[in-house]
Nucleic acid binder design. Structure first.
Length: 497
RNA sequence: UCCCCGGUAGCUCAAUGGUAGAGCGUUCGGCUGUUAACCGAAGGGUUGCAAGUUCGAGUCUUGCCCGGGGAGCCA
């Protein structure tokens, strides 16, 4: 910020402006709209700042989301100016407060000259505390408007350095460089609210079904799978890595507590530059003792359905803001279609013959991204592909007793081309087999001794999966890219802000 | 690591090898119901960097830098 040559003439900025730099305004309650006349730079205390002697009852502080409860009353809103339109002697400021936005109306004769001038000179994203009367209006998108009565400017954005993100179109690079401001825009705010609902529902399902949350370490001594690239860190002179999965650790706690889950960030140093990849992402990983692959698939379909239905129920307004076609989500209920790998492979071969796929599918390989997109496009809900060839899957996956060439594993593919959101399996329970697998794949045996202990002492069949939160958010919100699903995405070549 | 596309005003983008432009934002003026308001005016440029071809390069060539999309790998 630089000069303030055009600051409006109401002498209150020196006090409020300085205070606003000291810290957040949370907790500061302005009962009166006139500013207290402090000489210093301290904020008013939380308890009522100076009330004028002739005070009428102070209007209650309201949020825009629940403004309808105050129809016909005067309320105080604390927020920011989103946009300002004017038409002669009429001003139409749009305020936002984090819960929503509402249009204010001020006529030159309906407010004091000071308030009218202050409002007229407001700049985008200036922070304001505004008082006005709530009025239902059919023209308003949210159903209500605010007839402005009084205004306090907390911090005015100077026009010499205007808020960079306008209501018009911007490019991806420009917005990502300003992610710290971009999150204020209605669409981004709505996405983050939906993300929060997804994370809440993801934990709630397990918490209310007897699962114990046991979070694994983020600093780890070795790779879980060895295939992906890890972020190395210096751990007091020893090499350590940021976790790429907590699976091995939740296997341990599952054998202690029965049903467990973990929920936290994971890190992968893959040099992937696609719309589905972040280097830092959040994963939720349940693990259950005595569960087999069938049980795991039932869990997965119930789990995903619960999450999607929770978003539909609790985030209706946000889904509307982002323009999501909710009919595509309403169908997400159990049971999900299930395909054996072999069936899916046949379908892919046919799709190639029919010209739906550019590249032929080679039996025995894992599915490519276009393959997953094609398969998932055939269904109105997630599809579960199970029993992949064991040799393309991880060392810890249990072979199918009926045919050991296949692994007891499942991938859940989200519809509308969003691809894999869950990968899971029944785990090898035999010490001998797991030990042999570790040697075959030339994994560092010392690092896995503790993991082998789980098969030495009371080994049982058990199963679990990992679900990537950002991919679920991208699917539920129908986003083009996972970079919009997390407040501050970490990607190949992007660490700022 | 590989393949494709792009980089011009604060932003989004135009410009046949021949005078660098528009809309928005900003500033000034107008409008009593605007919905990314509208109307009029002003200000705003080392065309990513470097070299080359040419009478002349935003435009063609080469190298580099930065960004986007995709493949592989994965959630």
């Amino acid at each position: 910020m630089s000069s303030r040559s055009k600051d409006f003439p109401v002498p209150r900025n020196s006090c409020i402006g300085a205070a606003s730099q000291r810290g957040p305004l949370d907790g500061a309650i302005f009962w009166n709209v006139r500013p207290p006349k402090h000489k210093g730079s301290t904020m008013p205390k939380e308890t009522a700042p100076t009330a004028p002697e002739t005070a009428k009852p102070a209007p209650p502080v309201a949020t825009i989301a629940k403004i309808g409860q105050h129809e016909g009353q005067s309320v105080t809103l604390r927020g920011w100016l989103y946009n300002l339109r004017e038409s002669g002697k009429l001003l139409f400021p749009i305020f936002r407060d984090g819960t929503g936005s509402i249009q204010g109306v001020a006529h030159v004769k309906s407010v004091t000259p000071e308030v009218f001038e202050a409002l007229k000179n407001l700049t985008q994203e200036s922070s304001v505390i505004v008082t006005g009367k709530v009025r239902a209006d059919k023209r308003a998108p949210g159903g209500y408007e605010l007839d402005v009565e009084d205004l306090q400017v907390v911090q005015r954005v100077p026009e010499s350095d205007p808020y960079p993100i306008t209501l018009k179109e911007h490019g991806v690079d420009f917005l990502q460089e300003r992610r710290h401001l971009w999150v204020r825009s209605p669409r981004q705010s709505a996405i983050l609210r939906i993300r929060a609902e997804i994370m809440h529902a993801a934990a709630e399902y397990f918490d209310s079904n007897g699962y114990i949350r046991t979070d694994p370490p983020i600093l780890t001594p070795a790779a879980c799978e060895g295939t992906s690239t890890l972020f190395p860190v210096d751990y007091f002179g020893e090499p350590a890595y940021l976790t790429q999965s907590g699976q091995l650790y939740v296997e341990s706690t599952a054998l202690a507590l029965g049903k467990v889950y973990s929920f936290g960030p994971t890190f992968r140093a893959e040099k992937s530059k696609t719309r589905r990849h972040l280097t830092e992402f959040w994963m939720v990983e349940p693990e259950v003792a005595y569960m087999d692959l069938e049980g795991l698939m039932e869990l997965a379909e119930n789990y995903i359905s619960h999450i999607v239905q929770s978003v539909l129920k609790n985030r209706t307004a946000e889904l509307q803001v982002i323009g999501r076609d909710v009919t595509k989500l309403e169908t997400v209920k159990p049971p999900f279609p299930r395909l054996r790998y072999d069936e899916a492979a046949e379908m892919l071969n046919q799709a190639y013959k029919d010209g739906h796929l550019e590249a032929p599918f080679e039996y025995g390989n894992d599915f490519g991204s276009p393959d997953e997109t094609w398969l998932s496009s055939l269904y109105d809900r997630p599809v579960m592909v199970h029993r992949y060839p064991a040799n393309v899957k991880a060392f810890y996956m249990e072979p199918d007793a009926k045919d050991p060439r296949y692994a007891l594993c499942v991938d859940v593919l989200a519809p509308e081309g969003y691809g894999e959101i869950i990968g899971g399996s029944q785990r090898v329970s035999s010490y001998e087999l797991l030990s042999a697998r570790i040697d075959e794949q030339k994994l560092p045996r010392e690092a896995f001794e503790w993991y082998l202990d789980l098969r030495r002492y009371g080994s049982v069949p058990h199963a679990g999966f990992g679900m990537g939160i950002e991919r679920v958010v991208a699917w539920v919100c129908a986003l083009d890219h996972v970079r919009e699903t997390i407040p501050f995405p970490r990607m190949l070549h992007r660490m700022y802000p």
